[in-house]
Design a protein around this nucleic acid. Structure first.
Length: 457
DNA sequence: CGTATTTGACCTGCGC
DNA sequence: GCGCAGGTCAAATACG
């Protein structure tokens, strides 16, 4: 499962921090309370030791608030800080039941709608299914590894490592070489799926059984979700633990690219890359890849669902769609905006990997003629502007450029929402927005209901 | 002293 | 085959 989330000081001491040398504290923004707090820009493990926010209310509040992003320069977040929801999530996670650990948008939407359509909406999407599987596995004390090609890699790689320790230096080198060869994700011995990383194609004779599964797994492994957001911090804090394993200078960008891998699971294959935008260094680009093979804390689940669904959307994009070819390879062959959400997501299957980019850097705009946007405070720290606006416009048919419903957008979004993977992605995104901004207000359920009704139309 | 980060080396894939 | 770029490993180093 992929995931993304909030930005804070993060765990690293990479280039981003170096740029801010002299700052002992990382300025962070708290979407929830608006209160200010500075967290030491040290290892996350030490942060939650001093955190006492473990009562139910705070647990509720932290859920789904992963995206503590600076949505624009106008937020004035420099003096804001945010509660370390990553730390909170880890602290609280062990106390939660299995049901608690089910991802939040599913709960919210099911409570609100309870329609069969919405169950399909949640249950048929790849991401939703995966999340459920993981969580159930956790509940049984049996961590169900995702049927993921990279899991195979990771496990086999670990095996190689263990063996190499026993065999001495020469054998260790050989083992490492074997592991490296195997690491190329199917390039040599395994199926050819992962190395190619081409989108499945409509019209091509469909492979069957294991081949299909392997292809899907490999593609999911390589499908990427990129999140662009403004942040002073060095990396985004998304509820998971990350360990930096490398840093490289990328061509065409003076800022180094940092590589992280998830350390919440023993052999979790999820990795992410963090890099500042060359054109605008206030923009942090985080790219997620892979699926978690372990349960996630609440703070990470919703965002994980979003990115997982986004990746799933990429993978399933070639499948037959009721949208009349809205999502298909010809479109994926070049960057494509999500219909009705041009400011939100760009989909690209161009080399090297299919990638969906969520751009959260667009300046916020108030949609005209709409006073019911589901935000607690449009101008306050709870703002999640562009993403929220786009979704809200899509759902309500209100176009910021015109008063009244945008019927074309409505029809397009309606069509899009009949695609389970897209619907799942949007549901997760919407849920995260609701949780992050209007939790505590009765609007949240209303909006979920609205989505349910919308899908049902 | 244990853990996380840094960084140079090494690998693969790709284009020429 | 060679060079380049992206990605990863692991020893060295830093840090708490």
């Amino acid at each position: 499962m992929l995931f993304f989330g909030s930005i804070n000081g993060g765990t690293s001491n990479n280039e981003g921090d170096k740029e801010n040398q002299g700052q002992d504290m990382v300025k962070e923004m708290d979407f929830l309370s608006g209160s200010t707090r500075s967290s030491s820009n040290n290892h996350h493990a030490s942060v939650d030791e001093n955190n006492d926010l473990d009562d139910d209310e705070h647990l509720q509040l932290q859920v789904g608030t992963g995206l503590n992003l600076q949505m624009g320069r106008d937020l004035g977040g420099a003096d804001k800080s945010m509660v370390d929801d990553e730390a909170l999530s880890r602290k609280s996670y062990n106390n939660l039941t299995i049901e608690d650990k089910l991802f939040n948008n599913k709960e919210a939407i099911e409570e609100a709608g309870k329609s069969h359509r919405m169950r399909q909406f949640l249950g048929l999407g790849d991401a939703a299914h995966q999340v459920s599987s993981i969580d159930e596995g956790d509940g049984d004390g049996e961590e169900e590894s995702m049927p993921n090609s990279c899991d195979n890699y990771s496990n086999s790689n670990e095996e190689h490592s263990n063996k190499s320790d026993e065999r001495g230096d020469h054998s260790a080198k050989m083992a490492r070489k074997e592991a490296l060869l195997e690491r190329s994700w199917g390039s040599k011995n395994t199926t050819s799926t992962s190395s190619n990383m081409q989108m499945p194609r409509v019209g091509v004779q469909a492979p069957t059984g294991e081949a299909v599964e392997q292809s899907h797994e490999a593609t999911m492994r390589r499908a990427r979700v990129s999140v662009r957001a403004r942040s002073e911090a060095s990396m985004i804090s998304d509820g998971c633990q990350w360990r930096k394993y490398g840093q490289k200078m990328a061509k065409g960008n003076p800022c180094p690219r940092a590589y992280y891998r998830c350390t919440m699971g023993t052999a979790c294959p999820v990795r992410k890359q963090v890099q500042r935008c060359a054109e605008d260094r206030s923009i942090l680009i985080t790219t997620y890849e892979g699926q978690h093979n372990h349960p996630l804390p609440n703070a990470a689940v919703t965002m994980a669902t979003t990115t997982s669904a986004a990746a799933s959307m990429l993978v399933s994009g070639s499948m037959s769609s009721p949208m009349g070819g809205l999502i298909n390879p010809p479109i994926f062959s070049q960057p494509t905006t999500l219909p009705g959400l041009p400011s939100l997501a760009t989909i690209s299957a161009s080399a090297p990997f299919p990638t969906i980019t969520l751009d959260l850097t667009r300046p916020h705009q108030h949609p005209q003629g709409n006073t019911n946007m589901p935000v607690g405070n449009l101008d306050g720290p709870g703002l999640v502007g562009p993403m929220q606006q786009a979704l809200w416009q899509a759902l309500c048919g209100v176009d910021s450029a015109q008063v009244g419903p945008n019927k074309d957008a409505i029809s397009m979004i309606k069509a899009a929402l009949t695609e389970p993977s897209i619907a799942t992605a949007l549901a997760a995104a919407i849920s995260s927005i609701m949780k992050g901004n209007v939790d505590g207000s009765e609007n949240a359920n209303d909006k979920n209901l609205g989505l349910s009704n919308f899908v049902g139309n």
